[in-house]
């Protein structure tokens, strides 16, 4: 059936998603993730190049410019996978720089950008900085996988800021989905009072709420990718931020004492969700943007 409203990814889109999921599972599994946590601040250039070869950065460049020639609907599928894997590095900025900054499309150049909120992720590791990072000072970043600098706040939205908000929202959906899966897996395994805790309504209702948030946010992000409407993107970012942060919190809660440890991965998702929420179009601004269209 062609032409009818169809929310399901088509076969090519599913293949694309499967491809990146397999690439990330092979190249950035749990061991690589924990190694990155133990040796922070470094972009894995080999992986960056592989992402480039897989079309992660050149995805939306026209084919005659050496790109894949696809659009935002495909890009949000890839960024959701990157978010689920907690893939580190300035992925959004490098993706948006493809075609404008030499080597970005191929994964040979690491590009970062000063966010409108005055935050610069990955400043020391990047080859190219877009925006004015003069006088930027390092923060002790809450997220062990995202080094941050603070630059004077411009408040100005760069040309790519709306797309950056959408792709960041897609990463948030990835975190929201990972947290749902991790909570369900733990609740189905952990036994107390002689049964798995996932049989208790107090726990299963937390899990159900996580799925609802994920699905609502995913529908918003995927639709916004199709319409590319500025207000719809702002709304999607707002819902995706809320879903990622709230799901990470609930996932932590379901994990009990384990959830509070450095060893469990859930804190990495929570911290990254906070960073993504603050980096571009944070909650209050997104809400204002949607309200202004009412």
């Amino acid at each position: 059936m062609t032409g009818a409203v169809d929310f399901r990814p088509n076969e090519d889109q599913r293949d694309l998603r499967r491809g990146i999921r397999e690439l990330l599972a092979g190249r950035f599994g749990r061991e690589a993730l924990r190694a990155a946590v133990d040796g922070p601040g470094r972009v894995d250039r080999g992986l960056w190049k592989e992402l480039g070869e897989a079309g992660f950065f050149a995805l939306r460049l026209p084919e005659e410019e050496g790109g894949v020639g696809l659009g935002l609907p495909e890009a949000v599928l890839l960024f959701e996978e990157a978010g689920r894997a907690l893939l580190p590095g300035p992925l959004v900025a490098t993706h948006l720089a493809a075609g404008a900054v030499e080597g970005a499309a191929e994964g040979l150049t690491v590009v970062t950008e000063v966010s409108p909120e005055g935050l610069v992720p990955w400043l020391d590791a990047a080859d190219v900085v877009r925006g004015d990072a003069a006088g930027a000072v390092p923060l002790r970043s809450v997220d062990p996988l995202t080094p941050l600098h603070r630059a004077p706040r411009t408040g100005r939205l760069s040309a790519g800021a709306v797309e950056a908000a959408l792709l960041t929202a897609a990463e948030q959906v990835g975190t929201a989905a990972w947290c749902t899966d991790a909570a369900v897996a733990h609740a189905g395994r952990r036994e107390q009072f002689g049964q798995v805790i996932g049989g208790f309504q107090a726990v299963k209702h937390l899990c159900a709420g996580m799925l609802v948030r994920t699905e609502v946010a995913r529908a918003a992000v995927q639709a916004a990718a199709v319409t590319a409407d500025r207000v719809e993107i702002a709304g999607a970012k707002l819902l995706a931020d809320e879903a990622a942060v709230a799901n990470a919190r609930d996932c932590l809660q379901v994990h009990g004492g384990m959830g509070f440890t450095w060893e469990a991965d859930v804190h990495l998702h929570l911290k990254r969700a906070w960073v993504r929420a603050a980096l571009v179009l944070p909650g209050a601004k997104a809400a204002e943007e949607v309200a202004s269209a009412l």
């Binding site: 929310f7 609502v216 946010a217 529908a219 918003a220 995927q222 639709a223 719809e232 702002a234 709304g235 999607a236 707002l238 819902l239 909650g283 209050a284 997104a286 809400a287 204002e288 943007e289 949607v290 309200a291 202004s292 269209a293 009412l294």
Partner: peptide
């Protein structure tokens, strides 16, 4: 105002 904006985002997402 932001509450109304957030609700608008939510109903748009529910429509989707």
């Amino acid at each position: 105002r932001r509450r109304l904006g957030a609700l608008a985002a939510r109903f748009q997402a529910l429509w989707r």
